[in-house]
Simulated assay, not measured.
Amino acid sequence: MIILHDICIYTVTVKITLLTGIALSRTYKENSLTSLITVGLLNASSAGLLIYMALVDLLSADFMGSKLQSSIKLQLNSYVAVLLGVGGMSLMTK
């Protein structure tokens, strides 16, 4: 029942946002201050949500597991791997 509810909400919201995007595309000015601020805020929100999902939802399950909790060496290796991954992604962004 919950899945059907989610599907219905997703279907309706996609249609509304598509229609809104089509309606606003005629008035959109790519280099205006408002457009640049809006795009920047939306990009920052998306990046923040992705970081939250990666750190809190995905990595926390791994880091709180009994296998990782029982081994200091495995914990250190895991932290180094996460930091190297974050550093690599930052370099790709640069």
Results as ranks from 00 to 15, higher is better:
M1I: 02
M1V: 02
I2R: 12
I3M: 08
L4E: 15
H5M: 13
D6S: 09
D6V: 02
D6C: 03
D6G: 02
D6T: 03
T11Q: 13
T11C: 13
T11E: 09
T11S: 14
V12Y: 09
V12F: 13
V12P: 00
T13L: 14
V14L: 12
K15S: 15
K15R: 15
K15I: 15
I16V: 15
T17D: 11
T17H: 08
T17G: 00
T17L: 14
T17K: 08
L18Y: 15
L18R: 13
L18V: 10
L18N: 15
T20M: 15
T20F: 12
G21S: 10
G21H: 04
I22N: 04
A23K: 11
L24R: 08
L24G: 00
R26E: 06
R26G: 10
T27S: 11
Y28V: 03
Y28R: 03
Y28N: 05
Y28L: 14
K29E: 08
K29A: 10
S32V: 01
S32G: 04
S32C: 06
T34M: 12
S35D: 01
S35V: 06
L36E: 13
I37W: 10
I37Y: 11
T38S: 13
V39K: 12
V39I: 13
V39E: 06
V39P: 03
L41D: 09
L42C: 10
N43G: 05
N43H: 06
A44K: 04
A44I: 04
S45G: 07
Y52Q: 10
Y52L: 07
M53T: 14
M53R: 11
M53F: 15
A54F: 04
A54Y: 00
A54K: 04
A54N: 01
A54T: 09
L55A: 12
V56G: 03
V56L: 05
V56A: 09
D57P: 01
D57M: 06
D57V: 02
L58V: 09
L58I: 14
L59I: 01
S60A: 10
S60H: 07
S60N: 14
S60D: 14
A61L: 11
A61P: 01
A61R: 07
D62S: 06
D62R: 03
F63N: 05
F63R: 00
M64A: 11
M64E: 13
S66R: 12
K67L: 07
K67N: 09
L68E: 00
L68Y: 05
L68D: 03
L68F: 02
S70A: 09
S71W: 02
S71D: 07
I72E: 06
I72V: 11
K73Q: 09
K73V: 09
K73H: 05
L74A: 04
L74M: 07
Q75A: 01
Q75K: 13
Q75R: 07
N77A: 06
N77T: 06
N77G: 10
S78I: 01
S78W: 01
V80N: 03
V82G: 01
L83I: 08
L83P: 00
L83A: 05
L83G: 03
L84S: 04
L84Q: 06
G85K: 01
G85D: 01
G85M: 02
V86R: 04
G87H: 00
G87I: 07
G88Q: 00
G88C: 06
M89G: 13
M89V: 10
M89H: 07
L91F: 10
L91R: 10
L91V: 06
T93Q: 14
T93N: 13
K94Q: 12
K94N: 11
